[in-house]
């Protein structure tokens, strides 16, 4: 897939090293075809998301029933006014995709932060302190693993009602398990290393040990998993929209557009196809980027 670059697993301080490390990363990015593509796609999407308000040619919510279901400009009946056509209420598809990128990214990134935080804390506690608390947390992990993500979210959202905030929280609450398991197992192995043992022997506090020795060892795997999970949550969000429990209008996300457009697939394909493409390309980019990051940062895991 991409070049495997050996990087020292332990972070070493010193600006010189940092610089060469940074250069190495850039070098490997340029060498890895997929990594570069992924990086480029993600950069573009983030750019679009951040500057969505300036980039969107039309008001994404402006309905115009006289212009509904207008095809993209290169087709008969299309107009350069609406490059990617209009949807069932006459809204500009391109503008909606641009604005929608904001919500999709927001949901993807924030829920990963929520999940990562929960997973990190519980994983550290579980791995570092062990004993009964480890047992409790691991049983909790097992319980979450036994319930399919989508089912858990479905029940949760049906109960508390779907909104941007609740979707982010629910996505976070269902996907933390991956991080917790990873963090726990890494913590377990680092904990037994000699330098940690000696640190403890000289009386370093738990907090110091975790901060100085354990976290730096976890961080690269953590970033890789988090990156890949942004892709997963974007897909999950669109599945939620299909089940009617995703982002609710007037807010717009790619998942919502795709799901709303599915009834027009046979008659006005552009309504669903473009947001679908946006999802696919973005997810593709994230996975490529994540895979490359994994090769660079963390050659241990495959």
């Amino acid at each position: 897939m991409s070049m495997q670059t050996q990087v020292e697993p332990n972070v070493v301080e010193g600006t010189k090293k940092d610089k060469s490390r940074f250069l190495k990363i850039i070098q490997s990015l340029l060498k890895s075809k997929t990594g570069f593509i992924g990086f480029f796609i993600v950069l573009t999407v983030v750019f679009v998301g951040v500057f969505a308000n300036y980039l969107a040619p039309h008001d994404y919510a402006q309905t115009n029933v006289d212009n509904r279901l207008m095809p993209p400009f290169w087709m008969e009946g299309g107009s350069p006014e609406h490059i990617l056509g209009t949807d069932n209420l006459g809204r500009d598809v391109l503008s909606r995709i641009i604005i929608g990128s904001r919500v999709s990214l927001l949901v993807g990134v924030s829920s990963v932060i929520v999940a990562g935080f929960i997973g990190l804390v519980l994983g550290l506690i579980s791995g570092y302190y062990g004993k009964w608390i480890d047992q409790v947390i691991m049983r909790l992990v097992d319980s979450f693993l036994a319930i399919p993500n989508i089912l858990f979210m479905l029940i949760f959202l049906a109960v508390i009602g779907p909104s941007l905030a609740s979707i982010i929280i629910v996505l976070g609450f269902t996907t933390w398990v991956v991080y917790a398991r990873m963090v726990r197992s890494e913590t377990l192995s680092v904990k037994e290393r000699d330098y940690v043992k000696s640190a403890r022997a000289v009386g370093a506090s738990d907090f110091i040990i975790i901060r100085r020795y354990i976290l730096p060892n976890i961080i690269s795997s953590f970033i890789v998993i988090a990156t890949l999970n942004v892709a997963t949550t974007i897909i999950l969000e669109s599945s939620l929209s299909f089940l009617g429990l995703g982002i609710q209008p007037p807010e717009v996300s790619w998942g919502l557009m795709l799901s709303d457009g599915r009834d027009y697939l046979a008659t006005s394909w552009w309504v669903a196809t473009f947001p679908g493409l946006a999802i696919t390309i973005t997810v593709l980019g994230i996975i490529f980027l994540g895979d490359w990051l994994r090769d660079v940062l963390d050659p241990k895991i495959k």
Binding site: I235, F242, L284
Partner: peptide, 15 residues
């Protein structure tokens, strides 16, 4: 395989 992962199930089904 990445593409397979990047396409939501319902979309594939309808297509």
């Amino acid at each position: 395989s990445v593409l397979g992962k990047a396409m939501p199930n319902f979309w594939v089904g309808i297509m």
